[in-house]
């Protein structure tokens, strides 16, 4: 889970490392992901999102690809 300056940097890094290009995430989406997972982490009542909740959280952020589903068995989404 890494930062890149641009789409081109993602493609170059994936090519150099033999990795498929996966869905890219904007910083506003990543900030929302960070808050969804961690905003209450220091509180007694904190709990991790559960696998059946996670697809909905990602979908609400515009990340509806099966790549983001921890229970998916198909996630070979094409580069976009």
């Amino acid at each position: 889970m890494l930062f890149f300056r641009s789409e081109e940097c993602v493609r170059e890094w994936c090519h150099a490392n033999g990795m498929p290009v996966r869905p890219r995430v904007r910083m506003d989406q990543l900030w929302a992901m960070a808050r969804a997972w961690y905003a209450t982490r220091l509180d007694p009542g904190s709990r991790r999102p559960q696998p059946d909740e996670i697809p909905r959280i990602f979908a609400n952020l515009g990340l509806g690809d099966p790549f983001w589903d921890p229970q998916a068995d198909s996630f070979e989404s094409p580069a976009r």
Partner: peptide, 12 residues
Amino acid sequence: PPMLFHCAVPAA
């Protein structure tokens, strides 16, 4: 700044 997050590993 303009930048992207990329995860090479599927959530599963």
